[in-house]
Design a protein around this nucleic acid. Structure first.
Lengths: 99, 99
DNA sequence: TCAATAGTTCAACAACTATTGAACTATTTG
DNA sequence: CAAATAGTTCAATAGTTGTTGAACTATTGA
């Protein structure tokens, strides 16, 4: 069970987050997570091959936008709403409304 | 008096805008513009050499975040508040509050 | 234990981004 | 017209990002 780097909530950085969301594929992933709650990696709808998606998951995780919960052979992705909201109130909600 | 490309308000693209703001230098420029209204290029506080700043101005202008008004030998930069607000309500305000 | 499943990591590569000094354009002022 | 000013464009370069197939790791189930 490997450790995954995920910044804690006071390490969240605004430009890092905006940069992570400034990509159509990642913004779409976040939108899906926002609509559907937790999703497994393969549950994310995209035509991209796995490694490319894996790359985007990593960017989202390391920016602090998503949390990854490992359960068995699956990884469940979800948005870190509470942490984001505390650090950057209204940010994610406002951005997602614009999608 | 050369024409400058600036997208019109229905061409504004969310990921393009987030990407433009997902850079500390550009976010800082936008913050200054938000605090001080119109500023000339050389009025923007930064240690970067001119061509580097010029590059960032271009990214901000082409993403539709700023407007450039040429007057004499100076260029006045300002945020396109109305256009941004119409297309992406609350977006810029929320982001700038997070800075 | 072996095969299947879920996902990551690796290596290679192309495309893009940021930075720099030098050269350029346009405008104003003497 | 020449010099100064404000800013951009160019060319070179270094570094980053995104994509891909192949190889890998970890877990589950037969």
């Amino acid at each position: 069970m490997k450790e995954l780097f995920q910044p804690n909530k006071d390490q969240l950085n605004l430009t890092t987050i905006l940069c992570a969301l400034g990509d159509p594929i990642r913004l779409n992933i976040v939108k899906q997570l926002s609509d559907m709650g937790e999703i497994t990696c393969s549950g994310v709808g995209s035509v991209l091959p796995r490694p490319a998606l894996s790359h985007h998951f990593k960017v989202l995780r390391e920016s602090g936008i998503i949390h990854v919960r490992i359960e068995g052979k699956q990884r469940f992705l979800s948005i870190r709403y509470n942490d984001l909201e505390k650090r950057f109130p209204g940010l994610l909600e406002t951005i997602l409304k614009c999608v």
